[in-house]
Design a binder for these strands. Structure first.
Lengths: 201, 201, 201, 201
DNA sequence: CGGTAATCGAGACGGTACGTCATGTCTTACA
DNA sequence: TGTAAGACATGACGTACCGTCTCGATTACCG
């Protein structure tokens, strides 16, 4: 959404909340079913029972609409994962739900398309990171911070690198599909992350 | 390429090697300069001085043409990296040239586009893995095999996982751009891979 | 034309009269200059300063566009020819303008192309007859009706056959070009038509 | 191929005459079935079991090939119609077989296409007239000459005009399809031609 | 309570790429 | 040497989508 804030008094006809919901819902359904490239703005407009101009009034680009639609459809739990008492447990709790969501064929296709879109439009890249990357990394940072507080890992741990060691391999298998992204692999990756952090001690 | 083998005597007019070279070269240049989506088949045909029908005779899809063009333009050294005597050195020698190549803005954009394309067309995905993923992983397997032979790492090391621990974080920063993909990070990732392999002992 | 009537309030953006005029004009010019087969839709679009999609939105086929364009460019006088007081005079007044128009090289070529098109597409054939054949035959029927009213020819005259006796030979020379379509021939044909009608008395 | 067996038996001089026959036959079948525009040279070559180059060696153009193919397939009786003793009978005998042949849907379509082609290529027009128009007109001239000899019509009769009065209306209904081309109409046209010739006495 | 202003639907528009197809030419291997 | 196989340049075809635009019809608030 461009501006959810409505603190300032607007003059004309207010924005139709119905239309907005219908657009996001239609876009989400079409995106999951057909992917980004195969989802046309005309199709979104038609399915939402809305004019194309209405969509373009609020979202300047198909990519940004997709971003909002997917955020709206996916991001059900803004709060971080539950605490388990150990770094290993926290990391698994952090990563497993994401793997479950991202492994569906539709999601995988979309994730790849969003990443590709981000290479082409810097503005889109920023929005993508803000919406999809940062929240999860923020949760990850908390997890590592708790581990530091518990004195489980050194305070000097480079959390940013650790997060890449954690998420990188998962994304890798997800996008390349050269090997299965199963829970075995998830545990291996978490284990490796722990090992690397411990070795840096 | 459709058929590199020409041991059998073909009947009609042979394929024009000039045209093929011109097409691959034109496609490569345009791809690097404009990216996959912004490279049109018409433009490739015109720049190659070739008819569009000729392109479509040999490459059924823009994606597969791009694959061949990039393979042709990039893959200069089919042999693996030089041996350094240590796993750490070998891994750095394996990864650094790839990082250098893939970090150029054009390459990054293209890599993302290829990955996105692969989610949509299973046939393309297979070709992509065969052309771009497997060769590098094969080199990586040799590197780890040498380390085993040197008794540097356990023989039971799961090489496939190790390769994902190595390449995954690099791809991650490359595609998401949330943090720099510099040599510092490369060394960190190699170090982490070593730590994880060592810890599994 | 698709919809000449516009008395009902339409919802969306109204059709651009400018674009429509430009398309018909461009098509007409190109058709007269190059003929039907050598006139491409791309060329029409470019010359009209219009997108190809706009043309295809309103005319499903090149043939139907040609029909409208030629009707628009040629059919200047919807009213019938002037009355001369005699069947002979009326027939000459009916036929001479048509011969003058149709004898130009461009027109001849186009007429033949339209007739050929009509053999292939039944829908086109109907439109062709409605636009180009029927109006002229209607005028002819009036001419013969007046002659009957003047008691110049029998009331039982088969007007449809008479019209074919009149137009048939003219079209024949026009399309086959085996002999000149001059005013001498026009007078001969009118004379023969009169003789045949009189002999049936 | 007409007969591959006999063809394989002979070694040195392959089948130039065989190929020619196969080409004409294949072209004729395809033309009658699909029309001129929908018959491609590739299709003719494939059906004839012949290379495209072989076709182009003998016929410079698709139109001229069609001309020969149709002439070969249709023109079964080069001799004129039988003599009946009266001009009326001779004209009917001249015209009825042609009407029967030309009325088939395939023929009608082709005739129109040939006429259209003739407007575009002067060389084709000449060949068309020589092959298809002149022979029939020559027969017609003989018919009228016999009538003059029998003193049935004046010696000063303009035969060229008379032939147009005869064939023109028939072609007209054939190509425009605004009214049926049945035997009733044929008799009316013959009658009208006779009346016009008699009236000129 | 009427004016003002922004919204919405419908959908036409310019632009551009797609992948297909046909024509007529040209190049090789074979017989 | 002619023929079959078939690659080639050229260029039109009709479809699809994008993002912009022009309407007339709705809502609100504001004076």
């Amino acid at each position: 959404m461009i501006d959810t804030v409505a603190d300032e008094r607007r003059r004309g006809r207010p924005r139709s909340a119905t239309a907005k919901r219908a657009i996001l819902r239609a876009a989400f359904d079409l995106l999951v079913e057909h992917g980004l490239a195969a989802t046309s703005m005309d199709a979104v407009a038609q399915r939402a029972g809305v004019s194309k101009a209405t969509i373009y009034r609020w979202w300047p680009t198909k990519g940004l609409l997709a971003l909002d639609a997917l955020y709206d459809g996916w991001e059900t739990s803004p709060r971080g994962p539950r605490e388990t008492g150990s770094l290993r447990g926290d990391l698994l709790a952090l990563v497993r739900p994401w793997v479950r969501l991202a492994s569906a064929p539709g999601s995988r296709r979309l994730l790849a398309a969003l990443i590709a879109e981000a290479q082409r439009h810097p503005g889109f890249a920023a929005a993508y990171r803000e919406r999809f990357v940062e929240p999860r990394r923020a949760h990850g940072r908390e997890v590592f911070a708790r581990a530091v507080a518990r004195d489980e890992i050194p305070a000097a741990t480079d959390v940013e690198v650790a997060l890449d060691l954690l998420y990188g391999p998962l994304y890798h298998r997800l996008l390349h599909g050269h090997a299965p992204l199963n829970d075995r692999f998830v545990r291996d990756v978490v284990q490796a992350t722990l090992a690397s952090v411990a070795a840096a001690r």
